[in-house]
């Protein structure tokens, strides 16, 4: 992948989307392994119904001693588990408008995604600004370790629409079905 920066960047404005279940755990495991003095500042995006993820990320950052370089942004959840499709159209639209402002205000240079429904509107907005030439950013998607033989819905959308610069899975069993994905190991 060709890097657009003229000289190596000092630090990268990073945005990471959290989500309930294992998504937040995996994202924070990756964040722990990244050099946070360079992946800074960091903006965590959570659904406003997901106070647990927000609390866990804040707690981790406090333990790392890097609380002052992170922020938490809460957006309306695009789709609750089990929510009827019809009403989810409205909540999704609402979430999209939030995301326009969120992404525009923060201007991330790196977007980290791993599958919760919330990551789709954020990803689409970031791509839109990039296509318009208003932002220079990279998008990384890594599928959850729980996915062995099929991608999550978010994963399928991002894979099929080729939205990510790097698309990773954690099990090689997925590579036959999704040849453009890469497997660079498991987080756990």
């Amino acid at each position: 992948m060709q890097v657009k920066y003229g000289s190596p960047p000092e630090c990268v404005r990073t945005m990471a989307v959290l989500g309930s279940g294992g998504h937040t755990t995996e994202m924070l495991t990756l964040m722990e392994a990244l050099n946070r003095s360079r992946y800074t500042p960091r903006c965590y995006v959570v659904a406003d119904t997901d106070s647990l993820s927000a609390a866990r990320a804040t707690e981790k950052e406090r333990n790392w001693g890097t609380l002052e370089t992170m922020q938490m942004s809460k957006i309306p959840r695009s789709r609750e588990v089990g929510q009827p499709f019809v009403t989810s159209v409205w909540t999704t639209l609402y979430a999209f408008f939030w995301c326009v402002k969120l992404v525009w205000d923060y201007k991330p240079q790196l977007l980290l995604l791993n599958g919760p429904g919330t990551c789709i509107p954020v990803c689409v907005m970031a791509l839109m600004f990039r296509l318009m030439g208003l932002m220079d950013l990279k998008i990384v998607y890594f599928e959850s370790i729980a996915r062995v033989s099929s991608l999550s819905l978010s994963g399928k959308i991002i894979y099929q629409a080729r939205m990510a610069d790097v698309f990773l899975v954690q099990w090689e069993t997925l590579l036959a079905k999704y040849p453009r994905a890469k497997c660079l190991g498991r987080l756990f």
Binding site: L30, E32, V140, L168, G185, F188
Partner: peptide
């Protein structure tokens, strides 16, 4: 597992 491979790619 280890996040090393993913971190290197990023």
């Amino acid at each position: 597992g280890s996040p090393h491979g993913i971190v290197t790619a990023i």
